[in-house]
């Protein structure tokens, strides 16, 4: 990752400082999977889309930070208790705002993210359509020749 950047930045981003760390064992479900593989799979997918608030650009599924562990515990316990991944995401968003979720929802603040691909598709289509139009012209020339 980048940095001559990439590596450097990444390094800075992912390093675990030794100081200021607690001595508590991780929460029960921070490093332990759920017994039900289907639920664990739901939890795993969800965790990959939640931001570790103490880290730089990492999901809670990629981090050793204690808070990421506690968030994984929350996710797994809630999933195990029968909540759907979307409910868990909503619960976290209601605490931390959209920032905590890597999956932007269409909203007043995020619509450009979803409009741009459509604009690009239309643009791409237009460019290609104009080429097709041109081909017909060329064919006519070929026919004449």
């Amino acid at each position: 990752m980048i940095r001559w950047l990439i590596p450097m930045l990444a390094a800075l981003a992912f390093i675990q400082p030794v100081s200021a760390q607690d001595r508590m064992p991780p929460a029960p479900y921070a490093y332990t999977q759920l017994d039900d593989p289907a639920l664990e799979e739901q939890a795993r997918e969800l965790m990959h889309t939640l931001r570790c608030l103490k880290c730089q650009s990492q999901s809670i599924a990629d981090s050793d930070a204690p808070m990421a562990g506690d968030m994984r515990h929350q996710v797994r316990t809630r999933i195990a208790a029968g909540e759907s991944p979307d409910q868990v995401r909503e619960w976290l968003i209601s605490r931390y705002g959209d920032y905590v979720s890597y999956e932007p929802q269409v909203s007043a603040t995020t619509w450009p993210l979803f409009v741009l691909p459509i604009v690009l598709l239309v643009l791409a289509g237009t460019v290609l359509m104009r080429r097709i139009g041109r081909r017909k012209g060329d064919d006519a020339v070929d026919d004449a020749a």
């Binding site: 931001r51 999901s59 890597y102 932007p104």
Partner: peptide, 12 residues
Amino acid sequence: AFDVRVSVGPPY
């Protein structure tokens, strides 16, 4: 710049 924080990641 408008004081709104969002994250854009793999799901996008």
